[in-house]
Simulated scan of single mutants.
Amino acid sequence: MMIPKKFVPVMLTPFQESAAIDYKALEELVEFYLSAGAGGLFANCLSSEMYDLSREERLAMVSFIVEKVNGRVPIVATGTFPDTLENQASFIKEMHSTGIDSVIVITGLLAGESDSEQVFEANVKKLLDLTGDIPLGFYECPVPYKRILRADFLGELVKTGRIRYHKDTCLDIDGVRAKIAAGKSAADFALYDAYMVHAVDSLKAGSAGLSCIQGNYFPELVVWLCTHYNDNSEDVDKVRRFFTENMAVMHDTYPASAKYILGKRGLGITQVCRNGSALSSGADYDNLDGLLQKFEELAEQINLKVYSL
């Protein structure tokens, strides 16, 4: 039997016009993700503009999400930010106390960009020692820089029983396959791929699912791909090409672009971002309106149920 694949959204943070967190819109967003079929949530991530949130906001927002989800799906959230290892460990404990399933560690914050693999791996092991038995995961976040985990080191960590989650951004299908193979020693370890260009190949290779920014535009389409990826059909190829061919427009002004699309889809979310992202020209709006039209046409072609609030 095939194990069902899951889509885990990298959650946006809705802001009011004043740039305060909009908790009413956040509750709507949670319900939208779940109605679209999300199998988990990744809160307090780069898409959440986590580096532009205060310590108190990060904890309050994740606690709110845990309360609203109420056990319906697992939740992971980032727990490391620029600081000493000891202070990162302390915040991991605080984040875990919100009730999430695993705390995510940013690989690029455990060693400097010029530091060796030996330094990085020693710091990872030290952080594990400092955080008791808290379940952890890794995110190869592009900010402050992208540090890719070696497959054999990931496999070594998975064998400790502490590592439950990995969000992969290596953009290399062979690297993804190697990490999947390295993690097979633990039944409760899951690798989620962020790169939609090889999403079908990644799912076929044994990834647990997808965790990509495209799901902040059209979550039900990512869920559809997680369900139908193994079908030998033209529809799968249409969906694959849609994500590949529209990669640029979905990245260019993100996350403001995703907030604009969600607003057009009926969510009460503003385009306000704290990280400087904004739609700055008529061409930006035209491109996104065209993207939404293409999605609606594709949804009709593959008989996809489109969700809205």
Rank of each mutant, 00 (worst) to 15 (best):
K184P: 00
P144S: 04
H198P: 01
A208V: 05
N216T: 15
L171Q: 14
L210P: 10
T160M: 04
A182H: 01
Y192G: 11
D174T: 15
Y192T: 07
S211K: 06
G215N: 09
I180T: 02
I163S: 09
D172T: 10
D168H: 08
A205S: 12
C170S: 15
V197D: 12
L149H: 06
I163L: 10
I148S: 05
Y145G: 09
K179Q: 11
I213H: 11
K167E: 15
C141H: 06
G161D: 14
E140Y: 12
P144M: 05
V143A: 14
C170W: 03
D168P: 11
Y217S: 04
K184H: 06
G155L: 06
I213D: 12
L157Q: 03
R177Q: 14
K159Y: 00
G175I: 07
H166M: 14
P144W: 01
S211H: 08
A187Y: 05
R150G: 13
K184M: 09
P144R: 05
L157V: 03
I163F: 03
G209K: 04
S207M: 04
D188R: 07
D201T: 05
N216H: 09
G155I: 02
A208H: 04
A205F: 01
A186G: 04
S185E: 06
S211A: 15
K167Q: 15
A182T: 08
Y192M: 08
V176H: 02
V176L: 06
H166P: 08
Y165T: 09
D174P: 08
G209W: 06
R147H: 10
K179A: 13
G155T: 04
C212W: 09
N216D: 15
V176G: 07
S211F: 11
R150V: 02
D188I: 03
Y217N: 02
C170N: 13
R150H: 11
L154E: 02
L157K: 07
I213T: 13
A182C: 07
D152K: 11
V200M: 04
P144H: 01
K184W: 01
A194Y: 11
I213G: 14
K159T: 04
V176D: 07
A205V: 01
I180D: 00
D152T: 10
K184R: 12
I213N: 14
M196F: 07
C170K: 08
K146T: 14
G155M: 04
V197I: 13
T160Q: 07
I148D: 06
I173L: 12
S185C: 09
